[in-house]
Simulated assay, not measured.
Amino acid sequence: MRYYIKFFVVFCFTNSNIDKFEALLNEYFRCDKPHIIGLAAVNYSADQLHLSPNYFGDVVKKETCKSPFKYISLKVMDIAKERVLDTSRSISEVARELGFKYLIILPGHSKSTGYMPVEYRSLS
């Protein structure tokens, strides 16, 4: 454990690495990966950044005070909020674009915003 803590302190993420994680998520949702792979996952992100999932989780938690899963979930909700406002696409199309395969509404959207996706869309 002492070795891990020492290694963790020496090689911990910097802001530029958090920026790399953010850029990785942005790129993930810009292309067709959600259709192919599904929702962005911690293992995928750790692999792309050449870190073990456990170490990646520890580092993201230390730097952002959020678990990687929570960080990714919040990112998905931010993107969903933007895309739901585009009335040329249905809510289920937006959900599929984000990697939700069989859902009609975006899970957690009402918890995050206080509104169902259709209500959120009509507010703007």
Rank of each mutant, 00 (worst) to 15 (best):
K20A: 12
I37P: 00
K33T: 10
H35G: 08
N15S: 09
D19A: 12
V9A: 12
I18D: 12
L25K: 01
K20Q: 13
N15D: 11
L39I: 10
K20C: 12
E27P: 04
A40Q: 00
N43G: 09
F11A: 02
F21A: 07
F29I: 05
N43V: 13
I5A: 10
I37R: 00
S16W: 05
K6W: 04
N43E: 14
P34L: 03
V10G: 06
F13V: 01
F11S: 06
P34V: 04
K20H: 12
E22V: 15
F29M: 03
I37T: 01
K33D: 09
L25V: 05
L24M: 04
I36P: 03
K6D: 09
K33A: 07
V9N: 05
K20Y: 04
V42A: 02
C12T: 10
R30H: 15
Y28E: 00
C31A: 13
I18C: 07
N43S: 13
C12R: 08
C31I: 12
I36T: 14
D19L: 11
L39R: 15
H35T: 12
I5Q: 10
A41F: 07
F21P: 06
A41K: 13
F7E: 12
D32L: 11
R30S: 15
E27I: 08
P34F: 00
C12H: 06
Y28D: 02
K6Q: 09
A23Y: 07
I36G: 01
Y28C: 01
F13Q: 03
P34R: 04
Y4G: 03
K6Y: 08
F7P: 00
G38D: 00
C31H: 08
Y28V: 01
D19F: 11
T14K: 10
K6F: 08
D19M: 11
C12K: 06
L25I: 06
Y28M: 01
R30L: 15
F8M: 10
H35V: 02
C12M: 11
T14E: 10
V9Y: 09
C12Q: 09
L39Y: 04
Y28K: 05
D19W: 09
A40T: 04
T14Y: 04
C12G: 05
F29G: 04
N17W: 08
A41N: 07
N15T: 11
F13E: 03
D32K: 15
A23K: 15
R30A: 14
F11E: 06
I5Y: 06
F29K: 02
N17V: 09
A40N: 00
S16H: 08
D32W: 02
Y4K: 09
E22P: 02
N26Q: 14
